[in-house]
Every structure is written in structure tokens, then in C-alpha cells.
């Protein structure tokens, strides 16, 4: 399996009246062919910005630095026209909000067909048939009739499927699903997860799922990256990360799940304008030591493919390791 997308030291900043908002700070991330990578973290940690940075869909006051290699080509160096041709055909975005992401005045068949006409160069009549086929493959009941309808006539789950259909119409190799389950109720959420899983199976595309829904991430992803304040603080195989998280923030996230005791993490995420020095999580971290306020931790590989950005698990800092374990036992006890 080759590496499809490779992000190196990506930094995205927004220049606003209040100062520079550093939404993404030095992200490294690889996505391999056909794998599902989940990006989890709380609201405002820069997940969505990362997704949009890959497609260069940010407003004008944003600056993106670093490198994003897609099939060996640096996306950030492409011309506007080249990136436009990449969108939808190579990398497609499945947007957050099914109720507002479809054009209210166009039939849904038209909206899928236009993507087919644009990317696969299908003539109009064929594109319509193909659109209906895609809807059918996503188990939308009565696809011929649905294609003739307008978005407001569909339920939330159906709209999400239509959006998925629009997304895969160009047969992209990478799908970015931005909060695909946001604002959906539990039943529809299950349906959407099912649709996304099917998309990957059917198209063989790799997928980057941006979500704050750990359940969805657990059910879908091969690998998970936990983001905090614009950084990846833990990265690893999904099962391993969810069963034995190492970073205090990741552990806090998982402990905050309803099934695990609904324990919230104290405090709030830092403002992305004034980030704390040292480890960005130290003001909220129950295990913070003095070094955390000064030294910015590296992303350390603790096991094969499992990396953590925390001074306490850094093997090269032996003395704190004991302290960390001691704290952990105290916490568990």
C-alpha cells in the first residue's frame, strides 16, 4: 500500500483584527491508500481547518504553510486552476451539514449529475442515469423518484446519502468527511456510518473523517489522530488508541464518554490566538510537571505506529516516567 496523502509540518493561520489565529500548528499526517483515518478532538481544535487546508478552501485571510503531498505532488504549490481540477475528481469533501450543503433550488439528481458531467465528462442524459445508480448503490429507496425531488423533500439521513453520492460521483481517491454525523440523531448517525463504511468498501478510496464523535471514529477508522489546539497529540491504530490512550488529553476524552463515566476534562481549550508555552495542554493537565510549562513535547513513538506528544511518556526523559505511572495509579485507584 502506498502513501496517498502526506502532510508535512502544515501550519494554517488566520489573520484577523484580534491577532493571528494559529488554527493548525505543524501537523504531520500520512494517509495510505484505502485506509480510514479519523481526526478527533473538541470543537475549535483545528480539525476542520486541517481538512479544508488540504483542498485549499479557506477564506482569503488564511495562510497555509508546509507541504501537502498528494500522490507525490505538493498541493500547496498547484495553481488555482490545477487545484480546482483536483477537487472532486481526486480529493472530494463530504460537507458537515446535510441540511444546508445541498442547493435548495436544484433537484438532487441534478446536483449529483453535475458532478458526473464535470469530472467524468458524461453527457447529460447518461449522467442522470449514473446519478440514479449511485443513489441506488447507497440504498436510497426509490432512487428514480428521489432524483426528481428537491432537498427539502428528503430526510436528514437521505440528504447525507445524497451528499455522499455527490462526493463519490467524481470517483475520488481520497474522501474528506467533515463532521459527517454532526447534528444527526442516533438512528441516522448509524445509517451515515454505514454509508461511509460502504463508500470506502465500494470505491476503495481512502478517507479522512473529521469528527468529535468518538463512537463514530471507533466504528469506522483504521487509524486515529487526536488533535488539541492545532496539534496532533496522539496518533495510532484506532483500537489501540481507544483502549489504551497515553496522552492525558486523549485519556480525558475517552473518560468523558457516557459509557466510561461521563467525566469531563476540566477547563477550556486555549484561545488559538494566545497559545500557552510548552505543552499546549498543560494548563488543564492533571499530571503537568514544571517542564510542561516550558518545553514543547515532541511526538514520540511509543510503540510501532503509536505516537504521543507528551513529556511524560517520552523515554528520553526517564525521571518523569515514574512520576507519570505513580499519578496514573493514583487516578485509577
Amino acid at each position: 500500500m502506498g502513501i496517498l496523502l502526506s502532510i508535512r509540518n502544515l501550519e494554517t493561520s488566520f489573520y484577523t483584527g484580534d491577532g493571528v489565529v494559529k488554527a493548525v500548528n505543524g501537523i504531520d499526517l500520512d494517509i495510505q491508500d484505502g485506509r480510514i483515518v479519523g481526526l478527533i478532538g473538541e470543537t475549535g481544535c483545528g480539525k476542520s481547518v486541517l481538512g479544508l487546508s488540504i483542498l485549499r478552501l479557506l477564506p482569503r485571510n488564511a495562510e497555509i504553510r508546509g507541504k501537502v503531498f498528494y500522490k507525490g505532488q505538493d498541493i500547496l504549490k498547484l495553481t488555482e486552476e490545477e487545484i480546482r481540477r483536483l477537487r472532486g475528481k481526486e480529493v472530494a469533501l463530504i460537507p458537515q451539514n446535510p441540511s444546508t450543503s445541498l442547493n435548495p433550488v436544484l433537484k438532487i439528481g441534478t446536483q449529483i449529475a453535475e458532478s458526473l458531467q464535470l469530472h467524468r465528462r458524461l453527457p447529460r442524459e447518461k449522467a442522470w442515469g449514473a446519478a440514479v445508480d449511485i443513489l441506488r448503490s447507497l440504498d436510497l429507496p426509490n432512487p428514480e423518484k428521489r432524483a426528481e425531488e428537491y432537498p427539502h423533500q428528503l430526510s436528514g439521513g437521505m440528504k447525507q446519502r445524497v451528499l455522499a453520492a455527490v462526493g463519490i460521483a467524481g470517483e475520488p481517491s481520497l474522501l474528506i468527511a467533515d463532521e459527517p454525523t454532526k447534528g444527526l440523531d442516533a438512528l441516522i448517525r448509524v445509517q451515515v456510518v454505514e454509508v461511509l463504511r460502504r463508500l470506502v468498501l465500494q470505491t476503495g478510496a481512502a478517507m479522512l473523517i473529521i469528527t468529535h464523535d468518538l463512537k463514530v471514529a471507533a466504528g469506522l477508522c483504521d487509524e486515529l489522530a487526536v488533535m488539541y489546539a492545532g496539534e496532533i497529540i496522539e496518533y495510532g491504530p484506532a483500537e489501540q488508541l481507544l483502549s489504551s490512550p497515553e496522552h492525558p488529553y486523549a485519556r480525558g476524552l475517552i473518560a468523558s464518554l457516557p459509557g466510561n463515566g461521563l467525566k469531563p476534562i476540566e477547563g477550556f481549550s486555549p484561545s488559538l490566538i494566545n497559545l500557552p508555552a510548552g505543552c499546549k495542554f498543560h494548563p488543564r493537565c492533571p499530571f503537568a510537571i514544571k517542564a510542561c510549562t516550558e518545553e514543547h513535547p515532541r511526538l514520540v513513538e511509543i510503540e510501532e505506529g503509536h505516537r504521543v506528544r507528551c513529556l511524560l511518556v517520552d523515554q528520553s526523559r526517564e525521571p518523569e516516567k515514574d512520576l507519570f505511572n505513580w499519578n496514573l495509579q493514583k487516578e485509577v485507584g
Binding site: 445541498l102 453535475e114 455527490v166
Partner: peptide
């Protein structure tokens, strides 16, 4: 509106 963003994310040009 988000559907404009969606269209752009799928490779639509300005005129379109």
C-alpha cells in the same frame, strides 16, 4: 451558504 462551499469543494469554477 454551505452548498456554494460544497460546489467549490467538488471542483466547480466561479462562473459555474
Amino acid at each position: 451558504k454551505e452548498f456554494v462551499e460544497t460546489a467549490r469543494a467538488l471542483g466547480a469554477g466561479d462562473i459555474y
